[in-house]
């Protein structure tokens, strides 16, 4: 589903001493099937932005389009429930939202709420559990007996079982160990491809933005500060530092190495091994 923001403003507690403009004339377009990383320092408007995506809040001014759904100021959205079925949001620490007696029941809660027939629910529970890598033996267990990483997978399976077309991920790897982080991100990327979802990833990890996204949206003070492919955005270190962000470590290192050796070293999608080869060649070079 295409997502378009047209000059969206969002003001918290308007006409009060606490009035705060969280989104300021925000415009962008994300084509169906894209994987977008949304980055910005704390308080830049990322959370407010994603709450618009399933109609949890409506713009104060401007328009949000998600596929055929339109969110406008003051008009109650006509098909809010249908929109929420299409847009799955994985909030931070989604495992805190688990509540059912068994993993199976927890995964089934979403689709049941949307009136999916019982037989179909069973199919989706099995399918979603498989997609997030939860073994069948876990389905009858209490989610609260599982490890943190497994609990998070249960929560994510519950969202996938609704079969969203847009997947919004708010810092989905927070609190996981390095292996768990990679596993979860690889899993989302695979699901994104297999189910041809439109994915939005809110992240502080520039590494993840580089590794998984095809588009990066940089926010600052509620405004769109920059957008482009990861390589376009991460080629502008100074501009990013001005809004308290930085480039991935690979880019940082390449800049420093270019300085040290007086030779430009660009990012060309190289991994650590390839970079080592380049550096070995540089270090081995004779000064003529």
């Amino acid at each position: 589903m295409d997502i378009t923001f047209e000059k969206v403003d969002y003001t918290y507690q308007a006409n009060s001493p606490f009035e705060h403009k969280a989104l300021d004339s925000m415009s962008f377009h994300l084509p169906s099937g894209s994987f977008t990383a949304i980055v910005g320092h704390t308080g830049s408007g990322k959370s407010t932005l994603i709450q618009h995506l399933n109609g949890l809040i409506r713009p104060t001014n401007g328009k949000v389009r998600i596929g055929d759904y339109v969110l406008e100021p003051k008009k109650k959205p006509k098909h809010a429930k249908a929109l929420r079925e299409k847009v799955g949001i994985v909030f931070q620490y989604p495992e805190h939202q688990l509540f059912e007696e068994t993993v199976e029941k927890d995964i089934a809660f979403g689709p049941r709420n949307f009136g999916v027939p019982e037989q179909e629910i069973q199919k989706r529970v099995a399918e979603s559990a498989r997609a997030v890598g939860l073994g069948e033996d876990l389905l009858k267990r209490s989610p609260f007996e599982l490890s943190g990483g497994q609990m998070r997978r249960v929560a994510i399976a519950g969202i996938l079982a609704v079969r969203p077309r847009v997947l919004v991920l708010d810092e989905p790897t927070a609190g996981l160990d390095p292996r768990g982080q990679k596993e979860i991100m690889d899993m989302f990327y695979r699901i994104h491809k297999e189910q041809q979802l439109t994915t939005l990833l809110v992240t502080h990890s520039m590494e993840d933005a580089l590794a998984y996204a095809d588009h990066v949206l940089v926010l600052d003070k509620g405004k769109k500060y920059m957008e482009g492919t990861p390589v376009e955005v991460f080629s502008q270190r100074e501009a990013l530092q001005q809004v308290q962000l930085d480039v991935p470590e690979m880019f940082q290192f390449l800049l420093k190495a270019s300085d040290q050796f007086g030779k430009p070293l660009a990012y060309q999608g190289q991994d650590v091994e390839r970079l080592a080869e380049q550096l070995a060649a540089l270090a081995g070079d004779r000064d003529e």
Partner: peptide
């Protein structure tokens, strides 16, 4: 205890 996990890089 993982107190910086949810902060942005600069905040961290």
């Amino acid at each position: 205890d993982e107190a910086t996990a949810m902060l942005d890089p600069l905040g961290r």
